[in-house]
Design a protein around this nucleic acid. Structure first.
Lengths: 215, 215
DNA sequence: CTCATTCCTGAACGGCGAGTCAAACGCGCC
DNA sequence: GGCGCGTTTGACTCGCCGTTCAGGAATGAG
């Protein structure tokens, strides 16, 4: 243990280099876009040489795919953490919506998240490896919504007889579609619009009135 | 006229070369993806030399942006033509949905259309010129839906008091989001799912039952 | 037919960026 | 101190692709 601690203190904490590079890569992809991301950009963001990047990752392509899913995992972790804070299903759904609106919460730079999603989509269209990863990520996204519905149904907050998985598809698709419109054209469809429409449609689909914070 | 006919018969009909190149570019982008589209691919698809491509377009980038909007215009023209075939608002909405489901109608290779949309999104995130074009295209998309709603409202097919523009946002976003899910993960969310959900949610939002073909 | 103009070609240029590699560095261990 | 191994560097190679260009072919006018 003494040995481990020494090691950890001296060299950049062991296997953390990989993660550091992944985070830097995600940052660069967000800023410059996947197509314009060069290995050197990632290296500079990390403060290391280009050679090192390829010492840890066998190719640029693999690194990019890993970075994309890494960033998405981070998002999902944040989401789970947020949802666990409030056990009420209505509040959870409302929180999930809030977290999904680009630029709504200043503490969560979600425009970043969505920019990455679009890159994932484009890549998944042609890269089977990315497609496989995307399946996992997307399933998780729909399940987050479905789980909230199931939870609300079991506690009696939501009406009985709701199809949780169907709602996962419906609300998930709605949020994705709205986010695109806000991202691309926030003069015509504002974050406030997205928030309103998400709540409105969700309420209609679930059959209750969704209000700002568990009211 | 005789002169014009001669001309048309000999050289590739005058200014059609540009259009030919645009179509070829759209084809290649659809097949290979924007990132992997080379000028030579476009030239080969056209059966011309690479030099000619840059004779008609000042740069690859401009050509790509133009090709993307060109392809989208084609889609919009088809959509308008289809909608004009049936004056009933319910039938129009149903047709719009059918046309939007990737791979549903064999005569319309719509997977192609959606693949192009995703490329447009990614590019619009960072290219101001593309962003501007996208605004136009997206507004047109929402308006197609809103116009159907307005029409149905005026003929009494749809309930009074509907907010047509709001529905344009809602249904437009829903279809976009569903299409992504189908495109990426058609084992989990099938075209049939998309069709069902689109109809289902639209009915709930508009307040009537939407059936296959104007029933 | 001749000339001017437009269209078209394909070879050549130039820059860029992924991936390689030999050498250096640092750190623990004997 | 010196050895050895994992880490890091940055210069170099190499292929690729957008763009240029000098010239050739087709076309239409007079």
């Amino acid at each position: 243990m003494a040995k481990a601690r020494t090691k950890a203190a001296k060299v950049p904490p062991k296997g953390d280099r990989r993660q550091e590079i992944l985070a830097a890569a995600a940052r660069v992809i967000t800023d410059r876009g996947l197509a314009d991301t060069r290995i050197q950009d990632i290296a500079e963001t990390c403060g290391v040489s280009t050679g090192l990047i390829l010492y840890y990752f066998e190719s640029k392509d693999r690194l990019l795919v890993e970075a994309l899913t890494y960033a998405n995992d981070q998002f999902y972790l944040r989401l789970s953490r947020e949802l666990r804070k409030n056990p009420a299903a209505r509040a959870q759904l409302d929180r999930l919506i809030e977290l999904s609106v680009p630029g709504l919460l200043p503490e969560f730079p979600f425009l970043d998240e969505w920019a990455l999603w679009v890159e994932i989509w484009v890549r998944a269209l042609r890269d089977p490896e990315m497609a496989k990863e995307h399946e996992v990520l997307n399933r998780r996204w729909r399940r987050s919504i479905a789980d909230i519905v199931r939870h609300g149904r079991s506690t009696g907050e939501f009406p009985e007889g709701l199809d949780a998985d169907e709602l996962g598809i419906q609300v998930g698709a709605l949020i994705d579609g709205l986010a695109i419109q806000v991202l691309m054209d926030h003069s015509e469809v504002t974050p406030a619009d997205m928030l309103r429409v998400s709540r409105d449609v969700s309420s209609k689909l679930i059959g209750f009135v969704l209000e700002p914070a568990g009211a």
